[in-house]
Simulated assay, not measured.
Amino acid sequence: MTDRQRADARRNHERILAVAEQEVAVHGAGASLEQIARVAGVGSATVRRHFPTRQALLEAVLWHRIEVLCERARELAGADDGREALLAWLGEVVTYCVAAKGLATALAFEGDPVQGNSCATAIEEAAEPLLRRAVADGAVAADVTVVELVTLIVGIVTVTEHHRDPAGSAGRLFALAVAGISPVR
């Protein structure tokens, strides 16, 4: 591959990603790959060459938000109150998922067993210390997993995305669910 071909491939990758970000912001995870290719000025085969699956494209678009959530989990891991730290972080995941169409879908995918789901894996790894701390503090039942908590959030966000006030509805449902994950004190 010549330098010119590599430069063209990099430009195509960046252009596809920029257009995909706009399309996912408007249409969520169901954004049309053909529309992304058309607006980016490339063929659908070029989109698939750079992003072999819809999931790969969605993960690339949402990766920055995932990194922010992971960093926030690391910041909260040192908090004095394990329950409050976990709930604060989960609340932020709800807020991000409501605001970023497609993020909940990216977290819900189980992914290819060989390639995995980098978004879900990163979130799970970042949240694990928060959950372990909350469990150790007796604030969360010992058998609760990060995957279950994220699945709960994905469900809440998915169910409320077409409500008049998605953020308010998701927040209220999350608060209701918290009573179910916290043991009676």
Rank of each mutant, 00 (worst) to 15 (best):
M1D: 08
T2C: 10
D3I: 05
R4Q: 13
R4N: 08
Q5I: 05
R11N: 12
R11Y: 09
E14M: 07
R15V: 12
A20C: 09
E21C: 14
E23Y: 00
A25H: 09
A25M: 09
H27N: 15
G28L: 09
E34G: 15
A40I: 06
V42W: 08
S44T: 13
A45I: 01
A45G: 14
R48Y: 14
R49A: 13
H50W: 01
P52G: 12
P52W: 03
A60W: 01
A60L: 04
R65T: 13
V68Q: 13
A73R: 05
R74N: 04
G78V: 02
D81A: 07
G82R: 05
L86S: 10
L87W: 11
L87E: 14
L87C: 07
G91R: 09
V93K: 03
V94E: 10
C97A: 15
C97R: 06
K101F: 00
K101P: 13
T105N: 11
A106N: 11
A108L: 01
G111A: 08
D112F: 00
Q115D: 13
Q115W: 04
S118N: 02
S118V: 12
A122Q: 09
E124S: 14
E128K: 13
L130T: 03
L131T: 04
A136W: 02
D137V: 03
A139G: 10
A141I: 00
V147C: 04
T151Y: 00
T151H: 05
V154P: 06
V154M: 06
I156W: 01
V157P: 14
T158C: 02
T158R: 11
V159Q: 12
T160Q: 07
H163V: 02
R164L: 11
D165W: 00
D165H: 11
D165I: 00
P166N: 09
A167M: 14
A167P: 01
G168T: 10
G168C: 06
S169D: 11
A170M: 07
A170N: 09
A170D: 03
G171P: 11
A175K: 12
L176S: 13
A177R: 05
G180N: 09
G180P: 10
P183A: 10
